[in-house]
């Protein structure tokens, strides 16, 4: 039945439906947030949840589409957060709406610029080395922010105007998802995926590998930067330690759990993993343990050997 409907929907109809879904989704979110359906704790989760979705979908562009592990995603988020916060803190003569809009774009652009700057020399590397260098860059960004005056150093930045609203978060989520989806169906996106699938063949087909690696990094950094701005203007306080290596790994867990390359998966995983620990009211320690186990089990299981091993174990038990 659903398949039939889907078949009938061509181009324009489908687009209309997507817009419909977006609007319904927005209304549902507003209802949940503004109505008295949720308790205060749940309400306070909505914005972080949205930010996590943006971070997960954007990291999926580097890790899922391009196939390179980025362990410094929190660094790009930090650049966006500090850029946006410093802007709104100092440009007080602008009214909130234009100020925040500019802050979001500025945060994204600044993060993207750093994405390119870091990417240009580094992306000639691949695999393990690339991953470790992104980690190094994330840490460099954090310690430089820690040592600067304009960022408030280790004490952090406080009294950032709280401009972040559900609507802003929702808008940025939609833009992130639409861009990620459309990227996949463009020649640029196909080039990026082909690099993941087989770099040597991609090059032989005329794909300039470095350029498209940088493009993927820049787009991912752009959205991470925007997520950072939303984060800064939600909590009103920024500290460099928020954006450490552990934060980058948290985002990676969303992407891996949701399935690398799957946008839907990233959204679902980010949602579940943000809400679940709160619902279970488990301590932070347990969350980390579960994340760790999830990473290992998924990877081992996904490789054919893992499946084999498990079935062999089961068989052994039967035999006994």
């Amino acid at each position: 039945m659903i398949e039939k409907i889907r078949e009938k929907m061509t181009g324009r109809n489908r687009k209309l439906m997507m817009i419909g879904v977006m609007i319904v989704g927005y209304i549902a979110c507003v209802f949940l947030a503004e109505g008295n359906l949720l308790n205060r704790q749940m309400k306070s989760l909505i914005v972080p949840l949205g930010i996590n979705i943006i971070l997960a979908v954007s990291l999926n562009i580097t890790t899922g589409f391009l196939g390179e592990l980025s362990l410094g995603h929190a660094g790009f988020m930090a650049i966006g957060a500090y850029t946006g916060a410093i802007f709104t803190k100092y440009v007080t003569w602008l009214s909130p709406f234009p100020a925040f809009l500019i802050a979001i774009l500025l945060g994204g652009v600044m993060a993207a610029i750093f994405g390119v700057l870091i990417g240009m020399p580094v992306l000639r590397l691949k695999g393990d080395y690339l991953a470790i260098v992104t980690l190094a860059f994330g840490e460099i960004i954090r310690s430089v922010i820690n040592a600067m005056d304009v960022t408030g150093g280790a004490k952090g930045l406080s009294k950032i105007p709280t401009y972040t609203t559900y609507t802003w978060v929702y808008l940025v989520i939609i833009v992130t998802i639409v861009v990620a989806r459309r990227l996949l169906h463009s020649r640029q996106g196909r080039a990026i995926v082909s690099i993941r699938e087989n770099t040597i063949a991609a090059e032989a087909m005329g794909v300039q590998v470095t350029r498209y690696k940088i493009l993927a990094f820049a787009i991912a950094a752009f959205f991470a930067g925007m997520a950072g701005v939303l984060y800064a203007h939600n909590f009103s306080i920024l500290k460099p330690d928020t954006f450490d290596y552990n934060k980058s790994i948290d985002i990676l867990v969303f992407v891996v759990l949701g399935g690398m390359g799957s946008i839907k998966g990233s959204v679902i995983a980010a949602t579940v993993l943000t809400i679940l620990p709160e619902v279970l009211r488990s301590a932070d320690d347990l969350r980390k343990l579960l994340y760790a186990l999830a990473l290992i089990v998924i990877m081992v299981y996904k490789s054919g050997n893992g499946k084999e091993m498990i079935s062999r174990l089961l068989k052994k038990k039967e035999a006994v």
Partner: peptide
């Protein structure tokens, strides 16, 4: 060296990269 997790059509489409 195919792009294994892309469809047959997509594999060929990648090769048009510089013609669009």
């Amino acid at each position: 060296r195919l792009f294994k997790k892309m469809t047959v059509l997509e594999n060929v489409m990648v090769a048009f990269h510089n013609q669009v």
